[in-house]
């Protein structure tokens, strides 16, 4: 098994075992969606109209919340130093870690979205559209978030700073994610237009996030 595959498997294992916290993001997502009707009232028509927006906001906050798990534990037990010293390029290691993080925290959000769609009075097609946009968009959130996680990992109180640094950068993803969901549900823009842009944003953030996070780790750990 190559070093990268080993790292990937280790990350996934760590996330799903007891204390890994892989499912907490999904639980947080569920709670945010449950809290929303208490704030805006149980009007089903209104919930259906703003449902995609609630789901996207919840997913954004949930993926942000799990981000400090990406690197903090590795810093504490010293494995981050080993990753930095290994022969594997740091960029690839960061990409493998972020991808494993998305599998264990982003993908569960996508999977439970149709279920939460029921709570928000979305029909099957609308739920599927939101789930599809989240599937395409949450990797961008993870990889943009990796920059913030790498910048703040060496700080003792980095958690809140991470959110402040990352959230403004996610504006385009949020705009096109919700736009694509709404396009599929009510139109009038064809679904393909915002959705392809969302995919483009994700692909761009895979590259930028990987390199920026690796650079931030190098400067932070020396």
């Amino acid at each position: 098994m190559s070093a990268l595959a080993a790292l990937f498997v280790r990350e996934v294992r760590l996330a799903v075992r007891v204390g890994g916290g892989g499912g907490i993001g999904a639980l947080f997502f569920l709670i945010v969606v449950v809290l929303t009707p208490f704030a805006i009232g149980p009007d089903l028509a209104l919930l259906a109209r703003i449902g995609p927006a609630i789901l996207w906001l919840g997913a954004l906050l949930a993926s942000l919340l799990t981000l400090d798990r990406l690197l903090t534990a590795d810093l504490e037990d010293g494995s981050l130093d080993l990753i930095l010293m290994s022969d594997t390029p740091l960029e690839l290691a960061v990409a493998a870690k972020a991808f494993a993080h998305w599998i264990t925290t982003g993908l569960p959000l996508v999977v439970i979205t149709p279920l939460l769609g029921l709570l928000l009075n979305l029909d099957a097609g609308a739920s599927a559209a939101v789930a599809l946009t989240l599937f395409a968009g949450t990797p961008a959130l993870t990889f943009i978030g990796a920059i913030g996680a790498a910048l703040s990992v060496t700080l003792r109180r980095g958690g809140l700073l991470l959110a402040v640094l990352v959230l403004p950068l996610t504006v385009p993803v949020l705009i096109f994610g919700v736009a694509a969901s709404n396009a599929a549900i009510v139109g009038p823009v064809p679904f393909g237009t915002p959705f392809t842009i969302l995919c483009a944003l994700t692909l761009a953030s895979l590259v930028v996030g990987t390199f920026a996070a690796a650079a931030a780790l190098r400067q932070g750990m020396e």
Binding site: V171, P172, I175, F176, A179, V208, A212, Q219
Partner: peptide, 27 residues
């Protein structure tokens, strides 16, 4: 160290700001 961290954030922001501007225009 603060300078290098801020530099990375500034560069990511410089890449992202035109995209944000364009997204918000679209929006």
């Amino acid at each position: 160290r603060a300078a290098r961290a801020a530099a990375i954030l500034t560069l990511v922001g410089a890449l992202n700001l035109p995209i944000i501007k364009w997204s918000v225009d679209w929006w």
